[in-house]
């Protein structure tokens, strides 16, 4: 009996572990960031970080993304394209990976999703351009639905599903920030 209780308890404990969060700009090596900026926004792209603050109610709404802070780090990208970016981690099969979501500030839609670091032995296919491009132009979180508007990758289902769900939540946070900015200007 003891043999069965321990695995079941462990399984439940593991299920309820946190699995992802925003990553501060210091958490990513500059070389990795530079490579991503060049690929997405052009060779001359530079970035400046802006720290925004969300109110406690919003932090509660996005608590999985902001588990221990009300600060949101939004990168302002200047280059061939003017973009904004947000970095977060998500979980693959076992290990975490780091991804960035790039937005077009003029239309408030997703421009690209870039996988900055992926260590795990399987599931790295989510960095394929064909998969990432599925997110382009998405403006509302409800437009991002795994296996419907975002196609799965056979053999990389867990990572594909994970990044899809996280990008959807990042988009929701981005839209909240934009609404907050517009209201502040009124």
């Amino acid at each position: 009996m003891r043999r069965r209780i321990i695995p079941i308890a462990m399984f439940l404990l593991l299920l309820f572990r946190g699995s992802w969060a925003q990553l501060s700009p210091e958490g990513i090596p500059p070389s990795v960031l530079t490579q991503s900026l060049r690929e997405v926004a052009g060779k001359s792209a530079t970035i400046q970080w802006e720290t925004l603050t969300v109110d406690p109610a919003a932090r509660n709404q996005f608590r999985r993304l902001l588990p221990d802070t009300q600060a949101v780090y939004l990168g302002k990208v200047s280059g061939e394209r003017q973009l904004e970016m947000f970095i977060a981690t998500a979980k693959g099969k076992v290990e975490y990976f780091v991804f960035a979501v790039y937005f077009r500030p003029d239309t408030e839609e997703i421009w690209d999703v870039d996988i900055l670091e992926y260590r795990e032995a399987y599931g790295g296919e989510i960095d394929y351009r064909a998969f990432r491009r599925q997110f382009r132009g998405k403006k509302q979180p409800k437009e991002i639905v795994f296996r419907r508007t975002i196609r799965n990758i056979s053999g990389a289902t867990i990572s594909a599903r994970s990044v899809t769900k996280r990008v959807r939540e990042v988009l929701a946070l981005y839209r909240y920030l934009k609404t907050q900015q517009k209201e502040a200007l009124r």
């Binding site: 572990r17 958490g27 981690t89 979980k91």
Partner: peptide, 20 residues
């Protein structure tokens, strides 16, 4: 179980990981 308790939080990129 001990490893899980002391496992690094998910927003760090170094540390232990558990699955199964």
């Amino acid at each position: 179980l001990v490893g899980m308790v002391f496992a690094d939080p998910p927003h760090t990129r170094e540390g232990s990981f558990v699955g199964g």
